[in-house]
Design a protein around this nucleic acid. Structure first.
Lengths: 347, 347
DNA sequence: TATTAGCACTCAAATTAAACGAGTGCTAAC
DNA sequence: GTTAGCACTCGTTTAATTTGAGTGCTAATA
């Protein structure tokens, strides 16, 4: 079946309506709401089709329809394609330059949460150096091997690795080749996987050296140590009945308080952003329901945006709310702050 | 009416029972539960008295009784008097020395929350200097007055105050006397009040100088700048139906996230602790319901304990839960960690 | 062939009613 | 002073009923 123009219109009407009301929407309502004149019966037929195609679903027989994740996805994608609808009812959001970075970030998180009525978070900016560019092991003396590691952004790290027995030049050469072909261009997570296969292939060969190499690379890449996350408006989720029952609220709140799970979201979002650097440039990602990397947010939508402070510092901010959030407003809020942060720290 | 032994026993039985079950407790239940043999009818009479005295109350006519804030207060006070009941069902709580102080504090907060099943928080330790000890203004030259401020812990601060017109020695002497008699021994909050009366009395006299003095004193006293608060287990409140409804949960969660209101609690608790340094020495405070300095916690009980790291660093940790929390267990948990922190950083 | 009116049917949510039961206060007897 | 007895209260539970928004299907219509 094909998603023709009329079906598209109806689908959009369903979603728009549901975003506003939060109630399942039925054929009568749509008949009134649509600009094309169609009887409820006709719309019912179309809705039946749309349901079969997976865009909408019924909470129970004889109720109206609500968008499925697929439906939301369709909506968000087509919304993102239409450039810049103007969003009206939002206060001007103005970031004031703060003395402390932490103050600034707290401010941004609060602005986001207060203006959108969803939960918000922002990460401290991270040095942009997540991929391995080059790796060289050199024999310094019989007991020591020097590892030189270059990561994206041309940051160079040195690490001396002690070995129990000397390694001959030939082996070292091979090992260098092996490591470079396997690991170059990989991020930390991928390197762990890469090393596992590597060790499996060359089982037993200098596996202690390889472990040391991994540690050294991890040190060089990881900037996690100084990752701070500021949250605001977690209690906003209580405004949305579909998230406000104890079970769900508790797990969301807990994720917000623990913060370490949020780290995953940040990494995921930052690395996704890096990948499609060329194409779109807004750096806004939408995760709907199960698309989210965080388990406890499977009933939410998560909208993230990266921001840049000065030259090489990238961070992430995010809005978390119900699936039926006002995506336009949220995207707009994120973009606004993105730009402001950009300008604020431009020297 | 007097709270005789029998009434006391019945009151305690009511409270103990309610702490366990969370349900209003009636005369039949008590009759079975009590060791002295009394018929439900007799107990009803006593309960009626206890209600009149304000220790217990009825959620509605013809329901059992629950403790009032006054009842809880009685219970907690008498409990605190009995030294050290052993508490059984708690895992060993072991704090591991961490590299970073923040890591340590996060760990402690988590231990507290996980072991008690309530919400927990801990503040970073503050330098113990909250009261003004001595204040001296000296004329340096016609345009400048030097303020020397000594606060508790013998920390000395100097501040140069510019004056538009020179002040003669006599006035300065008077002002010194006035300031010292009014402000010595006061904490920051009290100083603000003290200054207001002072200014009222001596209206107009060098009020700009007085304002500068206040700022200088505030600078010297306030250590708030580096106050960090770590929380854990905020979601535990969902385990207690009396706190889990959206309204209450939302405001508690919000307080936990914003953190600045928690600062009040910390100051209040630290300064109370300082006052009764001599008498009790456990440093454990219990705030029941409205006794709490934080508005949003009026349906909770808050138990706080101070801890000392090394020589002059004092911090506060706290457990927040329903009024019917297990006070013994909580007090025990706090004491355990108090001791551990004490030992851990003893040089 | 696409659209629509009509109608029987479904089902969550709201409303009402009845039964239950834990608990009380009061009185009179022990 | 203590207790048994009893009528009464009132929140909770359960079931029955009503309501209403919405559906799918069929047959008539354009």
């Amino acid at each position: 079946m094909e998603l023709n123009e009329r079906k598209t219109k109806i689908l959009e009407a369903i979603i728009r309506n549901y975003l506003e009301s939060g109630d399942p929407v039925g054929s009568r309502t749509l008949s009134r709401y649509l600009d094309i004149k169609l009887s409820p019966a006709t719309i019912r037929n179309e809705m039946s089709d749309l349901e079969e195609m997976g865009y909408i679903l019924q909470p129970h027989t004889s109720s109206g329809r609500i968008p499925s994740d697929k439906g939301y996805r369709f909506y968000v994608d087509s919304m993102m394609a239409d450039r810049e609808k103007e969003v009206s009812d939002m206060h001007e959001m103005v970031v004031e330059k703060a003395e402390e970075l932490s103050g600034l970030l707290k401010q941004v998180a609060k602005l986001l949460a207060d203006n959108t009525n969803y939960a918000a978070l922002i990460s401290s900016p991270q040095l942009h150096r997540n991929k391995l560019k080059f790796l060289q092991l050199s024999k310094v003396d019989d007991g020591n091997i020097l590892a030189v590691i270059v990561v994206e952004g041309n940051i160079i790290k040195n690490k001396m690795i002690e070995v129990s027995e000397p390694m001959d030049d030939d082996t070292l050469l091979k090992l260098n080749l092996l490591l470079n072909t396997h690991l170059n261009g990989l991020s930390l997570e991928e390197i762990n996987l890469g090393l596992i296969t590597l060790i499996k292939e060359r089982a037993g060969i200098h596996s202690d050296v390889i472990a040391s190499v991994r540690d050294a690379v991890a040190d060089a890449i990881r900037a996690d140590e100084d990752l701070e996350i500021y949250t605001s408006g977690a209690n906003n989720i209580f405004k949305y009945p579909e998230l406000a029952d104890n079970e769900k609220a508790s797990s969301i709140i807990s994720t917000f308080e623990e913060k370490n799970e949020l780290g995953q979201l940040i990494n995921e979002s930052l690395s996704r952003d890096r990948e499609k650097k060329n194409g779109e440039k807004t750096g806004i990602q939408v995760y709907i329901g199960n698309e989210s990397p965080i388990e406890s947010m499977k009933d939410c939508s998560v909208v993230t945006a990266t921001y840049e402070l000065g030259d090489n510092m990238k961070g992430m901010m995010s809005i978390i709310g119900p699936k039926r959030m006002d995506y336009e407003k949220v995207a707009h809020a994120l973009k606004t702050l993105q730009e402001q942060l950009d300008v604020l720290y431009k020297k």
